[in-house]
Design a protein around this nucleic acid. Structure first.
Length: 944
DNA sequence: CGGATCACG
DNA sequence: GACGTACGTGATCCGA
């Protein structure tokens, strides 16, 4: 029986743009960029692989755009006029797409004056009218007009990136109307990418509603005069011409002359040549291998590129949920051993050596790794194959007996070779903590894996409503193993009744501690393979894993603070706040708690009758800085006083008081704790105390930085990346004028001002700076208007000018969002993913918030990747330069702070500068230089 | 314990 | 159809 022909039409031009943005900037052995070509090649491979599967292609052709002019430009000259030129490293890939197609011995159709969409429509209709089925390989929404069935001959679409088939139902779901009416919806809503005007102010939701209510565009437009007076009615009446023009523009031309007959597209299989030659030429070695294995044609192998397949098909909302591996037995705490004799410990160590992999956890007396006393160590060699080695239990008071346990020094001496053995991988959950505890016992653990960091590199941002987003062990055990760990508070209690872990009876301690090692082992077994399956290896191995010991060491170093200086500031601030409080009470006419925004709001807006009080959700007046500054501008002295009071109260409580308390009495230094998984973008965060928000912007705040000092004979050296995020934006969005400005070392905000306003002065430069940042953060006309004190319309005009001057930016934003919507995550230049489960939310606020975050994440995240790489390389680089005693103390997102002997500054500065400036290489070749500024001084303040 | 505020990049 | 709009953090205080 003859198989019904099934024609696949590949929308090659659309594919390559999407592939470009979702794949790393690969280059072939000759240095030609081939990232998009690689994506395209794997996609063709997959299609060809489906050759004799049910519903697979019997006929296939690739359709490409040729030239940039089409009949639509005759109707509407602005059609596609706002399209920026393709990025520099994409341009050379266009001809390679044709090469790749020919390598697969597939027909490649393009026709001057016709867009790929029109050719696809014409071929699809021609095939359908012969009774063939047709699959359009694209996710272009214009083409969705074609989906449907005529006399049993079906046209559907295939989105290979999402591995999703698009039938009538999917189209209706997306547009709220059947495919025949999609063109009407598109005509109303317009399309910013193709520059189809639509009707201003009507978006997809409104357009879809209007069309489904009235049944067609014409009917909707005709009904406008009778609608009730509204913005919408006004827009419909005014926009009629534009909508009708747009309707023509979005109509596909379905009767083009077919350059080649359908029968020529018959797919007979893919001959090994010239495919092998093509794959070899461009260094696609993994595909080449598969070609060899598959005996001459794309083989049955379904794992062409597991990483891409996995990520493409994983829905953004599944929170990384996984079922436990079937071969992993459930947790059985009765199987754990409490190791109380040296012979048993040696037995465990020998088994761990043989296993080459051991999960390790330490139990201590405190959450602060720099102060904590080691209380015990647990090991796991397999599921339920775990033990706890108590080392410091009992004896905290004279009445309690010490249980039997191995002498601490002897046990550590026995463990040290295992923990330091190159041949045994030590797996931790949050290894930075254990590394610090053990380093203080003279054990430098290596090599290590960290399941917390692995989880972060796989699933950052995946939680919803704060559920399932964390990377703590208990949460991961719940999520991935379906296992509930013993809660720490059930072992040690909470609040005043809490006891130190060392006082927990050994039976209970063993269950708790060994379970942690057991669970860590299991999580490692589950999560580590996902790294290579999901494309996480690069970021984990090259960025985050090497960073763990480095950050641990920075925490151990700590930084010296000048306590008397802080005490003096505290005292000054106390006096000043007391004085201000008196004045404020006087102005208010009654005493009240100045620090209570609620009371302050009532005083200002109810009692004193100042205008413009805004109440938020909580029914409370807002009294934040912006409001108080406005009142102050209107002459309210009390607002001035409150602002001053707040600044001083903040500085005192958060900094000058708290920092003194944070001084470790043993080291006499302040040791922050960095979180490697704290910020969804990949940045570090700093707690207890937070040393990443020490004041610098105001003169009075800056005095606090003066308290961070070097030891005698030493200086602090601060090395900053200059404008790193803007530089990355210039590179990633491919903005020639910004790149040129950075290359020339120009003042970038001034350059922006010149481009935008044609002149540079303080005002225009300041506004340009605001706009530059607004771009990085995902702009809105209202947000910008608020910042600049202009109307939203004026702000919009500035945004338009910005996009016009720097066209790559708009394209970056658009393509980033498109990619995040499709895949569910954003990606940095180094492959770090951040998930955005709310990106397709129905709640517009939620969605818009996700969109802004998604625009920013690749930039902020790439910056984080770069400084992390610099940090990981810094330690060996300094050692190699004979500067092993130079200590790296702090990281503040784009800044590193070192302490070193004053005489070593000339030797160390160029090393630090070079490592930071070169940190992206060789993984990523930036088209802008990374500027690094270095300063030194006796204090952190003086080093700036 | 959540909200408001404000310190940083 | 209105809403509210800059990204990412952490610490402190107030008040329910």
């Amino acid at each position: 029986m003859a198989v019904k022909p099934h024609l696949y039409l590949v929308d090659g031009s659309a594919y390559i743009f999407r592939a470009y943005h979702r794949l790393p900037p690969l280059t072939d052995p000759e240095g030609t960029p081939v990232g998009a070509v690689y994506g395209y090649t794997t996609m063709l491979w997959k299609l060809a692989d489906d050759l004799d599967k049910a519903d697979g292609p019997t006929h296939l052709a690739v359709i490409l755009d040729k030239g940039s002019y089409s009949f639509r430009n005759d109707i509407y000259p602005e059609y596609k006029a706002n399209r920026p030129p393709p990025p520099e490293d994409l341009r050379p890939q266009f001809p390679l797409i044709r090469d790749a197609t020919r390598a697969f011995s597939l027909p490649c159709i393009e026709e001057e004056g016709l867009e790929a969409d029109d050719l696809i429509a014409s071929y699809a209709r021609a095939a359908q009218s012969q009774g063939w089925n047709v699959t359009i390989v694209s996710s272009d929404k214009d083409l969705m007009q074609l989906v449907g069935e005529v006399d049993g001959a079906r046209i559907d679409m295939l989105d290979t990136m999402k591995s999703q088939r698009i039938y009538r139902e999917e189209v209706e779901e997306k547009f709220g109307v059947p495919p025949e009416l999609v063109g009407d919806v598109l005509a109303l809503m317009g399309d910013s990418v193709d520059n189809i005007p639509g009707i201003y102010g009507i978006g997809p939701k409104t357009a879809s509603k209007l069309i489904s209510e009235h049944g067609s565009l014409t009917a909707a437009l005709d009904a406008a005069p009778e609608m009730k007076k509204s913005k919408l009615q006004e827009r419909l009446l005014e926009g009629r011409d534009m909508a009708e023009l747009s309707r023509v523009l979005v109509t596909l031309k379905e009767d083009c002359e077919l350059p080649e007959p359908l029968d020529d597209f018959k797919l007979e299989g893919v001959p090994p040549e010239p495919l092998a030659a093509f794959l070899a030429k461009h260094g696609f070695t993994s595909l080449l291998k598969r070609l060899g294995a598959g005996a001459g044609s794309p083989s049955r192998a379904t794992n062409l590129n597991p990483a891409k397949q996995e990520t493409a098909s994983a829905p953004a909302s599944d929170g990384g949920n996984r079922q436990p591996l079937p071969e992993m037995p459930t947790v059985d705490r009765s199987a754990y051993e409490c190791v109380q004799e040296i012979a048993r410990l040696e037995h465990w160590i020998a088994r761990a050596q043989a296993a080459r992999l051991v999960a390790v956890d330490t139990e201590t007396s405190s959450l602060d790794a720099i102060r904590a006393e080691l209380v015990g160590v647990s090991l796991a060699i397999g599921p339920n194959d775990a033990c706890y080695i108590p080392l410091g239990h009992g004896g905290s008071d004279m009445f309690s007996d010490k249980p039997q346990q191995i002498d601490k020094a002897a046990a550590l001496a026995a463990l040290k070779p295992l923990l330091e053995s190159d041949a045994v991988l030590k797996v931790f959950h949050n290894g930075k903590y254990d590394l610090n505890v053990l380093a203080r016992q003279g054990i430098m653990v290596s090599p290590i894996d960290d399941t917390m960091v692995i989880s972060f590199d796989l699933d950052a941002g995946r939680g919803l409503d704060g559920i399932g987003g964390g990377h703590g062990m208990d949460e991961l055990a719940e999520r991935h193993l379906g296992h509930t760990c013993i809660a720490f508070k059930d072992v040690c209690g909470t609040g005043k009744k809490a006891i130190p872990f060392g006082e927990v009876p050994l039976g209970k301690a063993t269950e708790y501690a060994a379970e942690d090692a057991d669970v860590t082992w299991r999580l490692h077994a589950l999560l580590k393979p996902r790294l290579s399956e999901e494309g996480g290896t690069r970021i984990y191995e090259r960025v985050d894993r090497p960073l763990v010991p480095v950050v641990a060491q920075m925490e151990r170093h700590g930084i010296h603070v000048n306590r008397p200086h802080l005490a003096k500031l505290s005292e000054e601030f106390a006096k000043e706040t007391a004085r201000l409080e008196g004045e404020i009470h006087q102005l208010a006419g009654e005493p009240f708690t100045v620090g209570s925004p609620k009371q302050l709001g009532d005083i200002l807006f109810d009692k004193l009758g100042y205008k413009g009080g805004r109440k938020g959700k909580s029914g409370q007046y807002s009294t934040d800085q912006a409001i108080l500054e406005r009142l102050s501008g209107e002459g309210a002295v009390i607002a001035d006083k409150v602002l001053e009071w707040r600044q001083l109260a903040k500085l005192k409580s958060t900094y000058t008081d708290a920092l003194q308390e944070a001084i470790n009495p043993e080291t006499n230094r302040v040791h922050t704790s960095y979180s490697l998984v704290g910020a969804q973008t990949g940045r570090l965060s700093s707690t207890d105390p937070n040393l990443q928000n020490i004041p610098i912007r105001t003169e009075i705040g800056r005095q606090i930085r003066e308290a961070f000092v070097a030891e005698p004979g030493n200086v602090l050296l601060a090395a900053d990346y200059s404008q790193i995020e803007l530089r990355l934006a210039a590179h990633m969005a491919d903005v020639p004028s910004l790149k040129a400005a950075f290359a020339a070392g120009e003042d970038i905000h001034a350059r922006t001002a010149m481009e935008m306003f044609g002149t540079v002065d303080r005002d225009t430069r300041g506004r340009a700076k605001t706009i530059n940042f607004a771009i990085l953060y995902g702009i809105s006309r209202w947000g910008l208007a608020g910042r600049l004190g202009v109307t939203p319309e004026e702000a919009q005009a500035m945004i338009d000018t910005y996009f016009q001057r720097f066209p790559g930016i708009q394209h970056y934003i658009h393509s980033t969002l498109e990619s995040v919507r499709e895949r569910g995550y954003s990606e940095t230049l180094f492959g770090r993913k951040t998930w955005f489960p709310r990106i397709n939310s129905k709640n517009p606020n939620e969605r818009a918030g996700s969109e802004r975050a998604a625009i920013n994440a690749p930039i902020q995240g790439t910056s984080a990747d770069i400084i992390k790489r610099a940090m990981a390389r810094m330690v060996p680089a300094l050692e190699q330069a004979g500067l092993g005693h130079v200590r790296m103390l702090l990281q503040v997102h784009d800044e590193l702070v070192f302490e070193l002997p004053e005489g070593d500054v000339p030797a160390a500065s160029p090393v630090i500068e070079r490592i930071m400036a070169e940190a992206a290489r060789p993984a990523v070749e930036l088209s802008v230089p990374l500027g690094v500024e270095i300063g030194t001084g006796a204090s952190w303040g003086a080093a700036h």
